[in-house]
């Protein structure tokens, strides 16, 4: 939770007055508006069941795009394919013009795609700050010899990591918790920690997997603010989410999946009025 229960009227997280420059270091790379991610004909079947089927879409740099769909529509599988956890049966995915399919997850992370998980996967027995420092792994170089002998290079790098990791904790409002064990955080803060850890990889595209699930209304509102912050840092946001209020409020474009297939794509207004979407997903509510 962003704050203790029962203190609903106290101010929530406060943000640093300006965007940390190191977070925004890749802002200049590529102009806003070009295609940062282009997925075509992506297909993945599990024993005859197509979890993702001929999915094609593209994400423009600097936007917030949401992927919605009923449970089992293939949203998380799509994320797993994009981060290298699964290999697709066919299709291509280009990140900044480079194919990322077939690369192992740590290489994709180094290229600039970060993600969070639907079921929180922090490192519970490490401190909050150490969690974020693991996120900085691919941005640092110290090897075994350097670390064991505490060579000047690795001491400097370690000091830099300790300092830099605080910027990400500041961003999600966890700076006071930096030395607590991550597993001891309340659930909502664990979600925020995952976002901070993902940001620490210095990504240009971040894939958020149901970041609002399990959060209360207040926390969800704060989460929306954080997502805007991330976008303002020049990081493109792809968002899988069930909370329609949040999705409709913050996303510029929405992709709708059902049974692994794209059934609609467009602005929130277009999607909301799409009969296919209403039938498949919003039907009961609308």
């Amino acid at each position: 939770m962003l704050k203790e229960k029962g203190s609903e009227n106290s101010p929530g997280i406060t943000f640093p007055p300006e965007i940390p420059t190191s977070c925004a270091r890749d802002l200049e790379k590529g102009a806003a508006g070009d295609e940062i991610l282009k997925v075509s004909d992506l297909t993945k079947t599990f024993g005859g069941l197509a979890a993702v089927k001929d999915v094609s879409f593209s994400v423009r740099r600097g936007m917030i795009k949401a992927i919605i769909g009923p449970n089992g529509a293939g949203k998380t599988t799509l994320y797993d394919l994009l981060t290298g956890l699964y290999q697709p049966d066919k299709g291509t995915a280009l990140f900044e013009g480079k194919s990322i399919l077939g690369l192992p997850p740590h290489r994709i992370a180094a290229l600039g795609i970060a993600r969070t998980f639907q079921t929180v996967r922090i490192f519970p027995r490490m401190t909050v700050r150490e969690n974020v420092m693991v996120g900085m792994h691919s941005r640092t170089r110290s090897g075994m010899t350097g670390c064991a002998l505490r060579l000047p290079g690795s001491i400097r790098e370690e000091a830099w990591m300790e300092e830099e990791s605080m910027t990400y904790l500041d961003l999600v409002g966890l700076e006071m918790q930096s030395d607590n064990l991550a597993g001891a955080l309340p659930f909502g803060q664990q979600r925020l920690l995952e976002i901070a850890r993902a940001l620490a990889t210095s990504p240009r595209l971040i894939l958020l997997d149901e970041p609002a699930s399990g959060l209360n209304a207040y926390e969800t509102r704060e989460l929306g603010e954080i997502i805007f912050r991330i976008r303002d840092m020049g990081i493109t946001v792809l968002l899988v989410e069930h909370d329609m209020g949040l999705v409709m409020r913050i996303s510029e474009e929405i992709l709708v999946l059902d049974y692994g297939e794209v059934i609609a794509e467009g602005t929130p207004e277009e999607v909301r009025s799409d009969p296919k979407v209403i039938e498949a997903y919003l039907g009961a509510d609308v």
């Binding site: 956890l85 740590h106 998980f117 990889t201």
Partner: peptide, 20 residues
């Protein structure tokens, strides 16, 4: 850094891998 990476993969291989 090396020790942290080892502890991270101990806790969640998938998360450590995706974090680079």
């Amino acid at each position: 850094r090396v020790g942290r990476a080892m502890r991270a993969l101990h806790e969640s291989e998938v998360a450590a891998n995706v974090m680079g």
